[in-house]
Amino acid sequence: MKTTLHRIAFTALATAISTSALAEDPLRIGAATYGLQGEFMQLWSNALEAHPAVLSGDVEVTVFDGRYDALVQSNQFDSMITRQYDAILFVPIDADACVAPVIKASAAGIPVVGSNTRCNTDQLASFVGSDDVLAGQMVAQQVIDQIGDNGKVVVLEGPIGQSAQIDRGEGIDKVLAENPGIEVLERRTANWSRAEALSLMENWLTAHRDEIGGVIAQNDEMAIGAIQAIIASGRSPNDIAIAGVDGITDALKAVTQEQMATILQDATAQAQGALDVALARLGKADEVPLSDIWERYPELEWAGGEADTYNIPWTLVDQDNVAELLEQRQ
């Protein structure tokens, strides 16, 4: 208790006189995630812990589990503001519910860097993420490239109303509009869930028999559920074009068996990039080590950390790069 108080007092003092020298105590960065219960956010937070500035001890990160609840996230913001964190990395559960906490934090002088999921406010210091509309376009294009200009597809969507569902859906719509020969047989939510997608796909296979030529899934879990339904029905997933988004480990394995395609969302780049930008906004970019993502994606302009938005590119996972990606997961 005493040391905590001391630390808070010290940080406040240090901030107040804006010491030019490297602070004795590490910078305290809070990471507010929407929830740690999925593989993607696990990869994201693991990447954060592996950031060179964290490893060197210059930065101390605390990861908060938002438990998929906007209210929980808002409360966590309150405590981060009270405890005067130096900066906050924010992966909101909802693009609108996140606005109030961000305004509160920036009013308290704490820069908030968004990551992965968008927040509908101009108060974010910056946003480091990937463009979900683009992902939607890519996943739809993958399927259409395989089945040609004419064919019938089904679309598995995320929970209705979530921003990723809306944006990826928009991307899918764009591509479908450009391809009038493609007929959408069914379009339903399976709530990002493998088990739900499995049952749904089983029933669609019954209703549409062999008509289904492609499965456009807004995430990999649902794509894998669809593959399992296809196998269970005695068909081969190699005969149906299936694509998902995210690049979770099971999806990478499925790619090696040529059962599907996936669009890798780079959790490492999103997490570490956000921390890099936060450090730049705190004026520490020159004093502490930054991540190597800027070298890995040459098309990504660092711009001294001053840009409003950093769009981490999506990577199409195919036979060429899947082995290497799987290796990184081990």
């Binding site: 219960q37 493998r194 088990a195 879990e221 894998i224 559920g225 399992q228 099971d250």
Partner: peptide
């Protein structure tokens, strides 16, 4: 049954 059906044990199952 669910782990075997979905080929994986998912923490949010």
């Amino acid at each position: 049954m669910i782990a075997a059906r979905t080929s994986a044990a998912l923490p949010q199952a």
